[in-house]
Design a protein around this nucleic acid. Structure first.
Lengths: 142, 142
DNA sequence: TTACATCCTCTAGCTACTGTAGGTTCAAGC
DNA sequence: GCTTGAACCTACAGTAGCTAGAGGATGTAA
């Protein structure tokens, strides 16, 4: 039986985060000691590991919820899980493309900084000037 | 004189976002009509363009605040602006590295999906198994 | 004058946590 | 059995950066 702190350490999660996952229904309500402290078993360890791994891969909590649901029902078609992963891959590739363009622009900015006064600072100038901008009015995904 | 809606369209910003920027002090309080509606001039258009461009490049609102402050004081050293841009570039490069690793793993997941039932779905299996994980307990930036 | 798009303020909600306050429980050592 | 201190508990507030909605006022063109 694991305390919440041990579970946290084993999965690289903060204690509060585990309680938060419980609150939003991503983790089940665990057993408690007489004094009211949470105690976890291996099933919970596995589940939390799954969640954390998926989070590291950039899956949203909603997507993880779906994936957990799928893995809880082994008879279901694999196609759904595959679709989620594909959607995720697509997003990652979009972000990559965007970030690569950003890197180029940032490199240019940094490269051209002459070290003088802000009045002739390229960094500020580039930000003021949209003409060389990648795209209009697009957002970057953090 | 521009209405807030026109300014929004010109900069690709939502009206609410402009009001939000005003609220947090990133945009100045504009003039108003007798009826109390906001009216903007070219200075505000420039400032908002600057902000949006910087946001597209992934700068935080705090960083943008610093940059705006620098550009408001043309006598200051360019070094600070350069430092902010360099910090940003570093972050972008870290995210890139991380995302590239993610793409590899996701591609592997998707590739190996055989199309059967979830009980033998590689996507779920990979998420259950941390052994091939990139790094332990690291976070991804959104 | 009337219609209606756009504006106003205020409040709440979103994601995915993280932090704090104030109090309780557990386990080890004596 | 008692003390100590780390780890636990709940509840609530705060983070970034917006976004959405309610309910009402304003501006402008026909």
């Amino acid at each position: 039986m694991l305390t919440i702190g041990t579970l946290a350490k084993k999965t690289g999660t903060k204690v509060q985060t585990i309680r938060y996952y419980e609150q939003i229904g991503l983790m089940p309500e665990p057993g408690r000691t007489e004094g009211g402290q949470r105690r976890y078993g291996d099933a919970e360890l596995d589940r939390l590991s799954f969640v954390r791994h998926a989070r590291q891969l950039g899956f949203s909590l909603d997507a993880i919820r779906e994936l957990l649901d799928l893995s809880d029902h082994p008879g279901k078609s694999c196609a759904e899980a595959d679709a989620i992963a594909r959607r995720q891959l697509k997003q990652v590739e979009q972000r990559l493309a965007r970030l690569e363009a950003l890197r180029t622009e940032l490199k240019r900015m940094v490269h051209e900084c002459s070290g003088g006064q802000t009045s002739d600072c390229r960094v500020l100038e580039v930000l003021r000037d949209h003409s060389e901008c990648l795209t209009d009015h697009e957002e970057i995904g953090a």
